[in-house]
């Protein structure tokens, strides 16, 4: 566990010490703010709960984009720069490397996500929303972010450079987002499976409306676990190639 935390701490520090991390942080906060002002605060009278729901809707998109941007460098950059050898020759397992790096990225994404809290607070000040809806929405964002980060980490373990890592991560993410659409044009039982794996449609929407859905939390945890496991296997496989 010590090695995992050490790797996570270094990863987190790298986001703060390099331009890339700060650019992602700034861009996400700016985009969230712009979307919130342009679409959620329309100037027309609306229920606060609906405004908050819109905020979480926009934030889910920026969270997924941020996940890909943050994870594309995790392992692909080490490979690109030749520093991967430091991790491969260190007395730590592949699972520890993947988990450590993932936790660092998750920590940074969590900080970005929580920095958006001023927007729900603005709604709270000017209107009336329940703290439960705010808490549920952020729980959903962190769950969706956790799963997206794991998908991005997987892309990063496969790719030789960061751009390719982002492309692989995005493709997998988009495929999982489109599950709901594909489920409509396929027959059962495939349609049922596709609807279930849809990252946003079935699993995130309840959180936006203030409902903490245990099934969806289990789903996000499963996606995270599965992609981190496959990422670990990819690194292990490289030693035997």
């Amino acid at each position: 566990m010590k090695a995992v935390l050490l790797l996570a701490r270094r990863e987190l520090a790298t986001y703060f010490n390099t331009r890339w991390g700060l650019v992602v942080l700034g861009a996400v906060l700016l985009l969230d703010g712009l979307l919130f002002n342009a679409f959620a605060l329309t100037g027309k009278p609306r229920y606060s709960a609906d405004v908050l729901e819109d905020f979480f809707y926009f934030s889910s998109g920026t969270t997924m984009i941020a996940s890909i941007l943050l994870t594309m460098r995790l392992l692909a950059e080490e490979r690109q720069e030749g520093t991967e050898v430091l991790l491969q020759t260190a007395p730590v397992s592949e699972a520890q490397v993947v988990l450590g790096k993932y936790l660092g990225a998750f920590g940074f994404l969590a900080i970005i996500t929580l920095l958006t809290i001023y927007m729900p607070l603005e709604i709270q000040v000017n209107g009336k929303v329940s703290w439960a809806q705010i808490a549920a929405g952020y729980t959903g964002l962190l769950g969706l972010g956790a799963a997206s980060l794991a998908i991005g980490t997987f892309g990063s373990t496969l790719a030789r450079n960061q751009l390719l890592a982002a492309v692989i991560g995005s493709l997998v993410l988009v495929l999982m987002l489109l599950g709901w659409l594909l489920s409509r044009i396929t027959e059962p039982p495939i349609s049922g499976v596709l609807a279930y794996v849809a990252l946003f449609d079935r699993h995130f929407q309840p959180f936006m409306r203030g409902r903490i859905n245990t099934e969806s939390l289990v789903f996000y945890a499963s996606v995270t676990f599965a992609f981190l496991l496959v990422s670990t296997r990819v690194l292990q496989f490289r030693r035997y190639r």
Partner: peptide, 12 residues
């Protein structure tokens, strides 16, 4: 791996 130290041609 605990017992090994490695310097590749290009320092990592």
């Amino acid at each position: 791996r605990q017992r090994i130290g490695f310097l590749p041609e290009e320092p990592p």
